[in-house]
Design a protein around this nucleic acid. Structure first.
Lengths: 319, 319
DNA sequence: CCGTGAGAGCAAATCGTTTTGCGCCGCCGA
DNA sequence: TCGGCGGCGCAAAACGATTTGCTCTCACGG
């Protein structure tokens, strides 16, 4: 009775219909645990991110989920809060629970150990916006699929935009440098300066957290230096919003006295006053790309060498 | 070997240590699927919400998860997009996957069927901000635990605030009335008007979606009526922000020409210009409360009649 | 010397499926 | 009449743990 009807063996249409009727009549629903146990597929994916409360990630999560749930998968969401220990623990738990795949925005790009055990457990892994600095790029081949946005070009465009506006002294408030995106965004910023023949000045480049607080703390150290900048590029929108707070608080006009550009184009960016010029980082699209790569693996549609997809960024000029 | 050590039988400390060493040496990790199968516990909870992209919900999710993951649970997040069919399908899937509990913000308060099957499957259920209008309140006893914020008092406070400011003609842009919160928020709005002896005017009360678009569509119909209001209470902050867009677009000064208050106090509320006066709806706290109720059930700490917890709201005056 | 009980080890049942092997029935062509 | 085969049903193995019952040994006290 356990359903030869489910495709494995030849069955007459008549019997098939009878079984289906019985299933409907009894309200029978197969126990997914038992099924998973037998088939070695749980139809489950873990999404490991720093913090769902960071407005960039719900969009990513949504993009991931749109595709996954259409394919019958459920999604575990894990917040690491930037703790490597938490990340490791979630990944270990993902293995224990036999998830079919993991999408992870790794805290520390070098923690290959956890990723390694996932691979060893034959779990599909997609890394999100991990470390791909040009410097280290050629030395090691990627071991998993990757999705990242073109951060470097993003900040390069943003910086060029400010240069075009006539600014010559442009600061940079970055996120934590041990994360992949921060490094790339910094590189783009430097690219643009160098291209115009401007020597970067470490006095107006700071690192903090990828949060509003990061901007709140970061901007004052720039402004209180010997030669304060007339414009600031921020590692993301939250930092930019924090910087905006500081500017308002100090009575600086934006953008007349101080120009600020952000990164990500979260919804809040269009709401602040003045509306933030920012680099759009299409979060949902990134999520879709992750899900796509993952599904290709779990479905067996793609088995070859790791792939990378780069989601392009673009400047949205506002004020 | 399968570990009498795990507490069931008396074991000498020496053996216990030996087993633990062996476990560590071999890197043995129990398969959670098999364990769940046997113990009938999956250490998994489903969170069913309209849309994680709505900035209110990541906070809730975070609040839920903080408690749950500290207790070893993982969280499935399901976006229904306001579709009853999707909700039903997610709940059915939750049963199939034998989750230990479900936290659900029900689309339609009357869809007892799905909730019923969850209860029948002995799954702990917490409903989030569901229908508890005073009118229907006494007739039916709740069948599950509930968490809701004091919506009614929230809008009442907000409306009174506007009345205190001298406004006498106050509009209301609501969310979909078939959701619990919308009904209660409307009730609070009416409460305040009636208390001051003002007759509500249906011409300046509209319903739309709980989104920015809701405000974008809603405000014009109020303003283009015969007697436009001088102030508007909005069903949530997204609606208020949409309304703000319209006001700006029409060249109305806020709050001089048109006062607007929101609901939820999402982060964006403090970012818009002018900063939005709003009612704080402590999302994370709500999430905590849900998790607390759920854990009390799954742990067996509480088995009696359904409980309700009411999270209180408060006005944050800004501009 | 024998009964007792603590601790250890072995084996089996169970959870609910999927998958596979095997046997039975009836129909068809040779 | 016999061989073969499509369709069907029954039974058993497997997935990997927990849980329980039973046996066995050893040491101790009566």
């Amino acid at each position: 009775m356990s359903h030869a009807l489910s495709g494995r063996r030849p069955v007459s249409p008549e019997t098939q219909r009878k079984v289906q009727d019985a299933v409907a009549a009894l309200g029978y629903r197969p126990n997914q645990l038992a099924r998973s146990m037998r088939t070695q597929k749980t139809m489950t994916v873990a999404l490991v991110i720093p913090d769902i409360t960071n407005p960039f990630y719900p969009e990513v999560a949504r993009g991931v989920q749109d595709l996954l749930s259409a394919n019958g998968y459920q999604l575990f969401i894990c917040n690491t809060d930037g703790s490597v220990a938490a990340e490791r623990s979630y990944l270990a738990d993902a293995i224990d629970r036999r998830v079919d795949g993991v999408i992870v925005a790794p805290i520390s790009p070098s923690d290959g150990g956890s990723i390694g055990s996932l691979l060893a457990a034959e779990i599909a892994v997609v890394q999100l916006t991990a470390d791909l600095n040009a410097g280290t790029r050629s030395t090691k081949e990627p071991t998993t699929d990757y999705v990242h946005s073109d951060d470097r070009r993003g900040t390069a465009i943003a910086t060029s935009y400010l240069l075009d506006k006539g600014h010559t002294r442009i600061g940079f408030i970055n996120g934590p440098l041990d994360t992949g995106p921060a490094g790339r965004r910094r590189a783009g910023y430097l690219d643009a300066l160098v291209e115009r023949g401007i020597k970067p000045d470490n006095a107006i480049i700071v690192s903090g957290a990828f949060t509003r607080l990061g901007g709140l703390n970061g901007l004052p150290t720039l402004l209180d230096g010997k030669k304060p900048p007339t414009a600031v590029v921020c590692g993301n929108d939250l930092i930019a919003i924090g910087a905006l707070d500081v500017a308002h608080h100090r009575g600086l006009r934006v953008p007349e006295d101080l120009a600020i550009v952000g990164f990500d184009d979260i919804e809040a960016a269009s709401l602040v006053s003045p509306a933030l010029t920012t680099v759009v980082n299409p979060a949902r699209e990134i999520g879709h790309a992750c899900a796509r790569l993952l599904l290709d693996r779990t479905s067996g549609a793609y088995k070859s060498a790791p792939r990378e997809v780069m989601i392009s960024t673009a400047l949205i000029p506002r004020a």
